[in-house]
Design a binder for these strands. Sequence first.
DNA 1: AATTGCCTCAACCGCGGCTCG
DNA 2: CCGAGCCGCGGTTGAGGCAAT
Length: 268
Amino acid sequence: MEKHGTGGNWIAFPQKAGLKRCGKSCRLRWLNYLRPNIKHGEFSDDEDRIICSLFARIGSRWSIIAGQLPGRTDNDIKNYWNTKLKKKLVGNMHHLKRPPQPATISTHPLISQIPINPPPPPPYNHQYGSTTSFRPLISSTFSAPSSLLPMHGNNYNHQVIFGGEASCSNSSDSTNQIGDQNLGFQSYFSNDRVDDVDADDEGHKFLIAANHGYDHKVNCFGHEQEQEQNPLDYSMEDIKQLITTNHISTNLNFFVDEIKTEPGTLYY
DNA sequence: AATTGCCTCAACCGCGGCTCG
DNA sequence: CCGAGCCGCGGTTGAGGCAAT
């Protein structure tokens, strides 16, 4: 590379360099490992936060995420996420405890008894593009690791995360992915963690939400608008507005309304 | 010491997009 | 408009290392 460069042509590179490799392989090796200023070693907490925040916002767009982390490559971040960071986050979720059921939830027709093992998904309503009876599948207290949350000098441990293209990892049919790309929300719980919510493959939208009932504020990972004070801090009314303006199920709207009444709860 | 299973991460694969003739 | 060539990206693989048994 120092002697010849690529000349904008990786295919010709191995011949110039006398390598028995294809250009593509050389390019990968250079970009991911050999080029100057590549940062190796442990990821810092700050990097963790940036990755999580961006993943929540844009999903597995590793090259874009890498662009925000100088010295890190998309491959590096992808590997880190898949092998460590995701487990770190999900592992924390698995230790969550289920809170007592508040009356407002248990008596609600749409959110009655919240099962530990999710039931089969309701049929997809093709007319309205949403489930006819959206319901939370899992409920538990939630406390994301502080190192993984975008912190801005306050306790934003209450959050709403909209499930997006994180559908079945073993489903290669991308047409089954529902995603709310317009909203820009995506789930931290990619792939395996939400396999039990196969409703997604039917076209159902799902919501992961937690609210610690702190001033009726929620933390919306990754939304870029309305950043007057804190880009990650939204009221329930803001969330409802986002949902309605993006034509997501009114049941969801209703659902979010319910979360407001139950602090310390995580829903799928 | 040998075996097994798990984890990590560099590398591979296939696809989509772009450019150019 | 079409096809070839190339690039970039995201998903996946598998060799090697390590820890547990």
